[in-house]
């Protein structure tokens, strides 16, 4: 059965037409964008292919470009792509470089217009600052508090700088909170803004967060590997709302319940936009109370 293969190589399109010998390399200059329409030469070649010829493509965006022309296409496997590309030398020239740098700019600008991406960036930044601040506080605690006036003067100056850093962290947190409330209103109310934002950052995208199952979400961000016996009980949710109200021995159980509620909240934020948080918060708080009393709910 005949298979045509289409691969994009930056500003070029590579086509292997089973009816012809070897590869066609066509310039593809309209970009930089992933949704560029196919170049005219490619449309002609596709038009020549018999209806039974199958079409394989390298990427999703190329598949969309082919399907916009009314032909079906499927994704080629990684090995097919690697081998095919190894047989055709494609020049790496100034044109390719310009194309990729322009594409990088366009993608960065697009990402910065997207509230989800901005929330992800803020979440990563806040986490980094929080960690650095933690190190600062520990270092300050370990710093000798002796009676020497020079040491005291130094410690005083250091403390002022730390205050500025704390101030920066507070402002960053406030911005993170506003962004999280906008992007994930339900999830933010159920697990708190910091955990909600970090869950999104760790999931990688709103769509991935919306697909997440509760067992996975519970462990999201855990640095340890899951294992049946001594596996981790929580990752990001350790910083979830009301965790500190739960006795330490019951926090794993609470993380499990919180993850189940978080999944409902996240799906509502991603798919329906319905305000489900009030009900979920009631369930969350009832769960906290029962874990505190040591009864099973």
């Amino acid at each position: 059965m005949a298979v045509a293969l289409l691969l994009r190589a930056g500003p070029r399109l590579l086509i292997r037409d089973p009816g012809a010998l070897g590869w066609e390399v066509l310039p593809w200059e309209s970009g930089p964008s992933e949704e560029d329409p196919l170049p005219a030469g490619a449309i002609r070649i596709l038009g020549r292919l018999s209806a039974t010829t199958e079409i394989e493509v390298g990427s999703e965006s190329l598949r969309r470009a082919v399907e916009r022309l009314g032909r079906r296409a499927r994704l080629a496997g990684s090995e097919t792509i690697r081998r095919a590309r190894a047989t055709i030398p494609v020049p790496t020239d100034a044109r390719e470089r310009r194309f990729l740098i322009d594409l990088a700019r366009a993608r960065l600008e697009e990402a910065l217009r997207d509230p989800d991406e901005v929330l992800i960036a803020l979440a990563r930044e806040e986490e980094r600052v929080e960690r650095a601040l933690g190190r600062e506080r520990n270092a300050a605690l370990e710093f000798g508090r002796g009676g020497d006036p020079n040491v005291a003067a130094y410690a005083g100056r250091w403390a002022r700088f730390r205050d500025l850093f704390e101030q920066h962290h507070r402002e960053l947190s406030a911005e993170l909170e506003r962004a999280a409330q906008r992007v994930l209103p339900n999830l933010t109310q159920v697990v708190g803004f910091r955990a909600a934002a970090r869950l999104l950052a760790q999931a990688g995208s709103r769509a991935a967060l919306g697909r997440m199952r509760s067992a996975r979400l519970q462990l999201l961000g855990s640095k340890r590997r899951p294992s049946p016996e001594r596996g981790p009980k929580y990752g990001i949710l350790y910083r979830g709302e009301r965790m500190e109200d739960v006795p330490p021995a019951r926090r794993g159980a609470y993380a499990r319940s919180l993850a189940a509620l978080a999944v409902i909240a996240a799906r509502a934020d991603v798919h329906t936009g319905r305000p489900v948080a009030p009900e979920l918060k009631r369930r969350r708080d009832r769960r906290v109370e029962s874990l505190r009393r040591g009864t099973r709910a």
Binding site: L7, R8, A9, G10, E34, G58, S59, E60, S61, L62, L75, S78, I81, E96, R97, L100, I101, L103, A104, R107, L108, A111, G204
Partner: peptide
């Protein structure tokens, strides 16, 4: 040096480049 904004977990997103 060519910059690519992508998640390394999803090579399919930069196979075109």
């Amino acid at each position: 040096l060519l910059p690519i904004l992508a998640d390394a977990r999803r090579p399919r997103e930069y196979v075109d480049w």
